[in-house]
Amino acid sequence: MHHAEAHTGDGTEDTLELRLTEELLGLIGDVSPQTDGRADAASLVGSPDAWSPAATAAGRFRLVTVEPRRDLSVISRWMNDPAVAAFWELAGPESVTDAHLRRQLEGDGRSIPCLGVLDGTPMSYWEIYRADLDPLARHYPSRPHDTGVHLLIGGVGNRGRGIGSVLLRAVSDLVLDNRPLCARVVAEPDLRNTPSVAAFLSAGFRFCAEVDLPDKPAALMIRDRTHRDQL
């Protein structure tokens, strides 16, 4: 599933390079204005490390914030899998993935890169981000505190068995349980990535619209807090 970063050089702005102004941070009400326009990620997105593990049909699952020195090699290896690279476009030397991770870890706090750990084994990569503070918000009627997710299943053995749907449901539940102001979990998988779109549907997301993003045609998927028990 593709990251939400827009390509540079075509007049669009890179997702993670947009800085929040002091005024906007104040209006959001999540954090106190800071002199450099940056915010603490825990204030904007929450602290996935502190979220209780989820018991799923696939096993005990938890999110752990990425530490590049520990996790870069495995994430870069996943990004170089042709099936992943087709949508994430982060194939190449480790420096490519490292730059992508550090833009989030050292950025303004709107996106947190995480490892998904299933029964003690890192097996997926996630990005939990504030969709309402992202350029994505220009392309759909966003609401305050909308939280977005990106997902990459690392091992080939974990693909095509429904694990993605199980984990998407678990992670969206974690977001809704730990972020009380968030009413919706949002995703924008590549419209051409049929298995990805199907996984979101099976996880209780509803297809809302086709969205023409700068770098891809996307399927806007939303899981609402009010309907999550029915889907």
Rank of each mutant, 00 (worst) to 15 (best):
V171P: 00
A6D: 09
I112Q: 03
P135I: 13
A199F: 09
A209V: 07
D71P: 12
L133I: 03
E210N: 12
L101S: 06
V186K: 05
P180M: 10
L152H: 02
I128H: 03
S73T: 14
T65L: 04
D224S: 14
A203P: 00
E22V: 13
R161A: 05
R192T: 12
G164P: 02
T21Y: 11
R69W: 01
L115H: 07
E5Y: 04
A91D: 11
P180E: 10
G160C: 10
A199P: 08
T8A: 11
A54H: 00
G204K: 05
L136G: 11
D229H: 07
K216V: 06
A91M: 03
D108S: 12
H3C: 10
A131G: 15
L20N: 13
T226C: 09
L176A: 12
R110W: 03
R70C: 03
G162Y: 03
S202A: 15
L231F: 13
R143L: 14
A57P: 00
A91V: 05
V117K: 08
L101D: 00
G155L: 11
Q230V: 12
A203W: 02
P189I: 01
V117E: 13
D40K: 13
I75M: 10
V211D: 02
L20D: 05
R206S: 15
S52C: 11
G164R: 05
L201Y: 00
A170E: 01
V45Q: 01
D132Q: 09
V171N: 04
H3F: 15
T65H: 04
Q230N: 07
T8L: 10
V156E: 15
R179Q: 15
A131Y: 11
T35L: 08
A57F: 02
A55M: 10
V64F: 01
E89L: 14
S43A: 15
T194F: 07
T8M: 11
R159N: 09
R130Y: 11
I222T: 00
A187L: 02
M221H: 10
A91L: 04
G107S: 08
A57W: 02
R138T: 03
L27N: 13
H139A: 09
G157R: 15
E22D: 14
S202P: 01
T12D: 08
R225K: 15
E23L: 13
R179Y: 02
V149W: 00
G29A: 15
G26S: 14
G120N: 07
G107C: 07
S47L: 10
G26W: 05
G59R: 09
P180H: 04
L18C: 07
Q104F: 04
S76G: 13
G46C: 10
D177K: 06
A57D: 14
